[in-house]
Design a protein around this nucleic acid. Structure first.
Lengths: 253, 253
DNA sequence: GCTGTTATGCGTAGACCATACGCAGAACTA
DNA sequence: TAGTTCTGCGTATGGTCTACGCATAACAGC
């Protein structure tokens, strides 16, 4: 969240405030040589190229040909920079559902949009989340998600809960597949061989008598077939939407 | 995952191997003055007291009255220590479902057990996950979860997918509530006032014309009522289990 | 045009962090 | 007793974020 003032009203970090178009530059002093968007873009470029771990203040500054400490005139802290990176990293929201779309198709499209954004920029998953969304684009995603449920029988609070549930699922699924990819890159194992290798490792470790159910799963070769991660994503997504559908039916009936 | 040898078989870090009881101490050289479990316990103690960020090698060493570098005789790296911390942090798995429990009750119990573990040790959520579970207790959790679906009509791979879906949900929900708690501690706002404050902030930022659905949610006072986080957890859990139920019905019929 | 105010760029330095390396000494085997 | 091997850990390297303060640039008012 954000720090608060005396009257307990939450207050935004300056850099976030001018992402909302509030806050005007004071007319005095020398012209700024950089801009917040330029810094954020540079940071995103670094993350895209070398991962989030490579994003240090000095590295970003180098990317801009500036000195490290110069950045602190624009962003209050590294955490603030990360927050802004997330905002541009997700990119613009997918837009409201096309007219005539039912809620299920709409949410499916919405979930896939987030899925794609996270696949493109897997470093987004490594940014420690410190609070609910407060940047313009993030709230844009929320808006578009809510609109999918516009015509539904759900209560407003339920709509929100459904969205939370979905976005959590997407993040989680993206985290798992990105771990496989990163593990593969780190160990040099083919991505398609990661899960089989994991299966062999576990099979070697566990005692079938103490882990019968797990043993059965392994024996069934569950981890051997390298199935499309998109299928796994679809599976979970459909389960969740089935659950939402059950709720909607109940509210309607 | 883990590094691999020439034959492409994944190999465990030494400290993990002796968590599985493999690997015997060589008889030569001076007696070890510490033990891996003692180090991990100390690290867990630090995390419990001051959060995961306080867990540095020097801090853990200080806790034990040892020198920083002495720890590296027992764990290969800080990441390895973190992995072991997670193993003891979750604690023992909840055990197989009591006889006569149907799958839904079993999974509910299982999900709540993980929920409770994460509530007790919220630093677990901050440990960067680098691969699938390979420690004894973690696989124990998996085993107990799988057993809940023992009698079901699902394929082995579907059981696994359901478990992945559930554990992801639990993690996600725990992350959200722990963020509220941490935000509250950081800003000094009452926990019950966090969401209302967030609601006021967003209301101040957004233009109702551009964010109509979001505006409607706020106007409905969704964020004002401070509802029990356990209710929110139950809501999502029931949606997911409804979805699983629909699948099981389909497989059965 | 001069002066005061205010912002910017950024150098320096402090307080951390993980960890590579190497050495002294302890405990075992032969 | 000699040799081997393992432990404890001091030192040092290179990285992190960022607090602070100074020189300078640009404007406002007189």
């Amino acid at each position: 969240m954000a720090a608060t003032t005396d009257d307990n009203e939450p207050v935004l970090p300056p850099a976030i405030e001018n992402a909302w178009g509030l806050r005007d530059r004071p007319p005095k002093g020398p012209r700024p040589g950089m801009s917040v968007p330029a810094i954020v873009d540079a940071a995103v470029r670094v993350a895209d190229a070398d991962g989030l771990a490579a994003v240090s203040m000095s590295r970003v500054a180098k990317e801009l040909g500036a000195a490290t400490m110069a950045l602190y005139r624009y962003v209050g802290s590294k955490d603030e920079l990360l927050m802004l990176m997330v905002d541009v990293g997700y990119g613009p929201s997918p837009g409201p559902p096309p007219p005539g779309t039912d809620w299920r198709a709409g949410l499916t499209r919405w979930a896939w949009a987030e899925h794609d954004a996270l696949r493109q920029r897997s470093w987004l998953l490594h940014v420690p989340i410190t609070g609910p969304p407060i940047t313009p684009q993030q709230l844009g995603w929320m808006e578009d998600g809510l609109r999918c449920l516009d015509g539904s029988t759900l209560a407003e609070s339920e709509k929100m809960s459904v969205l939370l549930l979905l976005t959590g699922y997407v993040r989680n699924e993206a985290t798992l597949t990105s771990q496989v990819a990163e593990g593969s890159r780190a160990t040099g194992v083919e991505p398609s061989e990661m899960m089989p290798a994991y299966g062999r490792l576990v099979a070697r470790l566990i005692d079938p008598a103490r882990f019968p159910a797990l043993h059965r799963v392994l024996a069934a070769g569950v981890l051997n077939q390298d199935d499309d991660p998109d299928d796994e994503f679809t599976f979970g997504l459909d389960r969740i939407l089935d659950g939402v559908e059950a709720l909607i039916q109940r509210r309607a009936g």
